[in-house]
Structures are given as C-alpha cells and as structure tokens.
C-alpha cells in the first residue's frame, strides 16, 4: 500500500486514490485537429507512455477531497519523487527529466497544440 500525500488532505492510503494515467497530454487545438492525420491524432488519443522508471501521472483523491494532482512516481520502486498541482510541470530535476525525455514532447499532436495561437475576436 502506497502512502500518498494529497496536497490538500495530507498523507492517506493509496486505496483512497485513483490513478488517471499519464499526465501532460495536450489536446490538439480545434483549428489544427482537422488538418492532423489520423495517425497523428491517435498519438494524442490512444498512445500512452509506459516507462520503466519515473513516470508523471495524474491522481485523484477520490475518497477524500476529490481533487486532481500530478505525481512523479517510479514504476519500479514506487518511490514518489514529487507531487505537484494539476496543470503545472514538475519542479524537481528527476521530474523535469521525465517530462523532457517523454516521446510526446516531439509528437505532432502536442506540437500542434502548443504553437497554435488563438485568433483574437
């Protein structure tokens, strides 16, 4: 049983949480998503990282405050390196590295979501 520190409630048992899979998956912007090929869009929709080592995940404190947050967890040792707010990127060196080495940073789907600027009304 993992003891996970919920940013709001403090240390709680793993059984109170649910894991939401890989974090930092950006949806391609609506304007570009039509122009993306199916294989590129499927990178966003279906493909998930499955590393042996540090993995950035989303977790929800389901039986407690029902808030989402991100966790940098080692999939081999279960060691938790960092817990940081949803929507933010990791701050620790280990977390930053895990963020950068993820293949998704170079995927067309993510690049399309990142560099498209919204047209002002």
């Amino acid at each position: 049983m993992l003891r996970i520190k919920c940013p709001f409630c403090g240390y709680r048992n793993e059984s109170e949480f649910s894991c939401g899979g890989e974090a930092h998956i950006a949806r391609p912007s609506a304007a570009v998503s039509d122009k993306l090929t199916d294989s590129t869009f499927s990178e966003y929709l279906f493909m998930r990282e499955n590393p042996k080592g540090v993995f950035l995940e989303r977790w929800c404190h389901t039986s407690g405050c029902r808030r989402w947050f991100n966790v940098a967890r080692d999939t081999v040792t279960h060691q938790i390196y960092e817990i940081y707010p949803a929507g933010k990127t990791p701050k620790t060196t280990i977390g930053k590295k895990a963020y950068q080495v993820n293949w998704r940073r170079k995927s067309k789907a993510e690049v399309a979501s990142k560099y498209l600027k919204r047209t002002p009304k």
Binding site: C9, R12, S15, E16, S63, G64, C65
Partner: peptide
Amino acid sequence: TAQCELALAN
C-alpha cells in the same frame, strides 16, 4: 474533520 473511508463507505 476528515473525508475518508469508514468500512469502505465514503
């Protein structure tokens, strides 16, 4: 206060 599980009930 705490929101938690009591005998698996929230």
